[in-house]
Design a protein around this nucleic acid. Structure first.
Lengths: 146, 146
DNA sequence: TCAAATAATTTGGTAATCAAAGTATATATG
DNA sequence: CATATATACTTTGATTACCAAATTATTTGA
């Protein structure tokens, strides 16, 4: 058990410290290599057809409104995102993906799906439940420390 | 199953995008609140008594030598790390933690241990094996994409 | 011996971020 | 209904973390 604990601890660190870099590698090799990782994550948070407000997206990404404005400026200039002024409250900016933005969104979703498939490969339903419970434990841990 | 898949996929994203922030929160609340997260990770990579070279640590952290030099400068000034010139090859700088650095190292290790304990809470040996296999799947995925 | 290689540092530039001030619009109250 | 306050976003002026390339010191090898 304690030996397993050690291995699991190391695996978690390894996974955590490498996954971002791998996402970045994939991005560099793809047709979207003019995007940075955080721009990609912003596209992801904006999501396909929700038209969330700038504030909502900023909150989701844990960014200040000012930082989000700058990110959206860049993404708009690169043609991935568009601002949609709300008519009923003209202070609000809603965000949408362009066609190009949606293509990138799907590409990233596909990468993520491959990752999850590999993660769960070779397990039956009962075992998947065990894995899910472990992840919920981690979510509880995070909730306790927020 | 596909419903589980969805939940697991979302949990992974949640965990991934929040864990760094939580580490940062803990750090802010601790006695080491003059450290940034990456400085803390550098302390971790330097580790207790290994006296690794600067190059080795840079590689481990996936940083260029120049960036590591700057990080070490800051950590030395703050009193966590010391440079040890090697006598047999005077180009080489070995890195060690000061007493203060070792205290911080242990504090972070304790945090990490709490996390892993919570992750594995309530599982028997067999179930822990399942979880470990899933993590190895992820490591395989990363190896395939490196 | 001295050219090439190696280890670290320095320098110049860019990304991403925040805090605080500013602008435009909406809401609430006296 | 006028105006003070609140809200949503943007702008500005920093700081931090990072990289690439040039530099310095030292070692190795031909």
């Amino acid at each position: 058990m304690s030996e397993n604990y050690q291995k699991i601890s190391e695996a978690l660190v390894q996974i955590y410290s490498n996954i971002l870099r791998i996402e970045e590698n994939e991005l560099r090799k793809s047709q979207f290599n003019n995007l940075t990782i955080q721009e990609m994550h912003a596209i992801n948070a904006i999501s396909m057809y929700d038209h969330k407000t700038a504030s909502e997206v900023a909150k989701e990404l844990h960014l200040t409104p000012g930082t989000l404005t700058l990110t959206i400026n860049r993404l708009a200039k690169k043609g991935y995102v568009e601002r949609i002024r709300s008519d009923d409250d003209r202070r609000i900016v809603r965000l949408g993906l362009t066609r190009k933005g949606r293509v990138e969104y799907r590409a990233h979703a596909a990468f993520h799906e491959k990752l999850v498939k590999k993660f769960l490969k070779g397990f039956n339903d009962e075992e998947v439940q065990v894995i899910y419970r472990a992840l919920r434990n981690l979510e509880d841990f995070m909730a306790d420390h927020s």
